[in-house]
Design a protein around this nucleic acid. Structure first.
Lengths: 147, 147
DNA sequence: TATTGTTATACTCTATAACTATA
DNA sequence: TATAGTTATAGAGTATAACAATA
């Protein structure tokens, strides 16, 4: 029969938007698999990072920064509180100030180590100038969507 | 009260993996909105492109090329057949050869125009050398995930 | 009146298991 | 035995509407 390795012509090869998606999925699925060892999803890890960087923030602020709906933040934060990784303290009557617990801080260190390893795996082969250029290009692309 | 525009420190700003995701979502959601005028989803458009570039291919080959499960390809192809955009002809007893109908070819032209406009919007501001560099970097990233 | 957090809900996307028919 | 297509289903992710409590 036909034994060609890749019998199809790829009409998307030159489309930057599509290649951006495939590359993004590649790095994120690898990171997601790494986080499984910590029983965390990507969003859990991102929220822990935000709380670590912004102690006392509330979940509405995190939602806005991540560009996700307020409603979808609820089960994520609640889950992290239930697991004892985040502490939720009443700030005013309707806002809760979020901070990492000691267990959350330990988890954050593990997250950071896995994320750094993932960055090294996928981007470590590029020199500093190329990485800076990539970062700048990605920020430019995002700005073109928001503007 | 606190009137800062962005009160949160973004701990993900330097992470290429995360910025890759945000940039990818930016370009894809814009393209997805553009396709709504044609009543097509992103996957529909991609499949039409593959059939256009590879007349006579089957849906298993498309699945493999796109990196999606066989099972999830079924409703996509069936929907395009039902809408008269793709023709499905028995090749052997279990394989169907897919080709574009005349309506499918017309739709493909519209898809291509919208995709080109989207590429121009998000990547047209980069010079040819930068775009080539981006494309090469993205391919390299993907290869590091598959290897 | 606007904002924060919440519940309920629905739709899309993606993933697995199991089945039929065919090579 | 392996492959192509399919069905049913379950899990994520993401969307909207509506509500209570508070600013």
């Amino acid at each position: 029969m036909n034994e060609k390795a890749s019998p199809l012509i790829d009409p998307l090869e030159h489309l930057l938007g599509y290649q951006l998606r495939r590359a993004s999925l590649t790095t994120l699925s690898a990171l997601s698999e790494a986080y499984e060892a910590l029983d965390l999803r990507l969003t859990d890890a991102i929220v822990l990072r935000f709380v670590a960087a912004n102690p006392g923030c509330n979940q509405g602020e995190i939602s806005k920064a991540l560009g996700v709906r307020r409603t979808n933040m609820v089960p994520v934060v609640s889950g992290l509180v239930d697991r004892g990784l985040i502490d939720r303290a009443a700030a005013d009557g309707r806002t809760h100030a979020l901070t990492l617990t000691a267990a959350g801080a330990t988890m954050h260190d593990r997250i950071d180590a896995l994320a750094r390893a993932n960055e090294e795996r996928f981007f470590g082969g590029f020199d500093a100038e190329t990485r800076a250029m990539l970062l700048h290009a990605l920020a430019t692309i995002r700005a073109r969507g928001e503007g």
